[in-house]
């Protein structure tokens, strides 16, 4: 007798496809699909739904990027297109997530650069893209319009909307056929509220990815972990307003004291450890897309996800 897990779930996480190939009106070399789970992550032989994916985060102004990552990358991170091409080729993440950090700087006054940066990254890599725009009401409408236009047809995942900061993003997603990230501050009810708000302004649920907000490992990560487990189990219990796949980033885990103050000779390995110890748990808690900034984390995370996923007879 082999014992099974005792699941009586009735719900299913929505499947969301990111990216579009030429056949679908885009230029990506492939698309990726997340979601579709009907049980807890990695549970079941084979596990249900799609395997969690890894996004590699890059930016267009590295002065706002974690120092250990900048040290490792050297000049590579000065040109986002070249950075995306290199990372895609050398480390093979499933997606690239581009942060337009230049728009977060005081006195940003070059909206045209948004178009050229997004275009250059689209040309440099065939991977599906996640694009993070501005966080300033004075800039949002132009920045997101430019992102939407530059990526028209590419089925981008655009972020990050919050309560009080979602209109420009939602408008872009609807006008140009993109998807969007909806973030709430580690609270299942606020996550649900924001989704309902987005539906009411006309965005369909299959265009939303939930960002539950990921606290840094050691500094609130456990709250994020539990809110993800709650969102996932709510979806599996059939709460339609929480059935979207989730995205999580290790970004904050790279700013903690233990990583920041690491001896330079250990800085890379410590950065990779902290990213791995935050993002593999995120995938186990239910995140469908986990994001890292140190490229060396990708292989370890992929091995961990692969080992949790693969099963005799189930394939990888």
């Amino acid at each position: 007798m082999t014992m099974q897990t005792l699941a009586d779930w009735i719900g299913e996480v929505r499947s969301v496809t990111i990216g579009a190939t030429r056949a679908d009106g885009g230029t990506r070399t492939g698309t990726v699909t997340v979601g579709g789970e009907r049980d807890l992550s990695f549970v079941g032989t084979p596990p249900t739904g799609h395997r969690p994916l890894i996004a590699y985060e890059i930016c267009d102004d590295r002065s706002l990027w974690p120092a250990p990552v900048n040290r490792f990358l050297g000049d590579r991170s000065s040109d986002p297109g070249e950075w995306a091409r290199w990372a895609g080729q050398e480390y093979a993440p499933d997606l690239i997530r581009l942060f337009l950090t230049s728009t977060r700087k005081r006195g940003f006054s070059d909206p045209a650069s948004v178009t050229s940066t997004v275009e250059s990254v689209l040309q440099a890599t065939g991977l599906p893209l996640i694009i993070e725009g501005s966080n300033d009401p004075a800039l949002d409408s132009e920045v997101f319009r430019r992102i939407g236009e530059a990526g028209e047809g590419e089925r981008l995942l655009i972020g990050t909307a919050e309560a009080g900061h979602y209109r420009s993003i939602a408008a872009t997603a609807m006008a140009f056929g993109h998807l969007m990230i909806a973030q709430s501050p580690i609270d299942i009810n606020l996550a649900k509220q924001l989704n309902i708000l987005l539906r009411e302004i006309g965005l369909s649920y299959d265009r939303i990815v939930i960002d539950p907000y990921t606290g840094a490992l050691g500094y609130g990560f456990e709250y994020s972990y539990s809110v993800m487990e709650r969102i996932r189990t709510s979806a599996l219990k059939g709460d339609d307003d929480l059935t979207m796949p989730m995205i999580c980033s290790a970004a904050d885990s790279l700013t903690v004291k233990e990583v920041r103050e690491a001896d330079p000779s250990e800085s890379d390995r410590i950065s990779v450890s902290w990213e791995l110890y935050a993002m593999l748990p995120a995938a186990i808690a239910g995140a469908s897309i986990v994001c890292v900034r140190h490229p060396s984390t990708i292989a370890q995370l992929r091995a961990g996800i692969g080992a949790l996923w693969s099963s005799p007879g189930g394939g990888a």
Binding site: R269, L276, Y277, L280, I284, Q300, A303, G304, L308
Partner: peptide, 29 residues
């Protein structure tokens, strides 16, 4: 996969985890 197995053990119900000496840099994590 020592790190992945430790992570899995901590989250999903492990109580006694046997491991080769954990390297200094992942020990804190």
């Amino acid at each position: 996969l020592p790190d992945a197995a430790l992570i899995c053990g901590v989250l999903k119900y492990g109580s006694v985890l046997v491991a080769d000496a954990v390297p200094k840099e992942s020990r804190k994590a």
